[in-house]
Amino acid sequence: MGLLLPILLTAGAPLRAEAPVSKEYQVKAVFLFNFAQFVQWPPKSFTSAGDPFYIGILGEDPFDAFLDETVKGEKVDGHPLVIRRYGNVEEATGCQILFISRSEAGRMADILSSLKGRNILTVADSGNFIENGGVVYFVTEGKKIHFKISLEAAKQAKLTISSQVLRLAQIAGPGKE
């Protein structure tokens, strides 16, 4: 019976009828924005102090304009956040965070192997991601979004993830699962 209330209360259509993106991806977009602040990239990732910080989306974009709105006007250590959309992985090698869309789930192993050695925080919510060397994997648990982090993959990409993120994550890795 306790479940009824949330269902009842959330059953309605949104007040903002124009909101185009599912809440799931709104929250994931804000997570990506947070990751930009809680992860440290090696200094060589940027050639100059004012270089953009790129968050890339590989494959079909589930965020619509929401991710762009989220990072609009935001900076990380002086680097303005910029969203890039990529059709194939070769274009994506210059970004700092790469969200790999569900449309690419079947090619996860190939995509991740071609990113090996890059200083990229790879993020996905589909496919055999962690097993193939991805870093952050979104899981929907119950009704909430949680994430798994592969410390080994983060280490290979030379990324330092804040303990504020790690303590909330499930630690996973190719060797663990």
Partner: peptide, 13 residues
């Protein structure tokens, strides 16, 4: 963020 219920059809936080 991790505590938000995201399964609702609603698009409101």
């Amino acid at each position: 963020l991790m505590n938000l219920d995201v399964t609702s059809v609603s698009k409101q936080p």
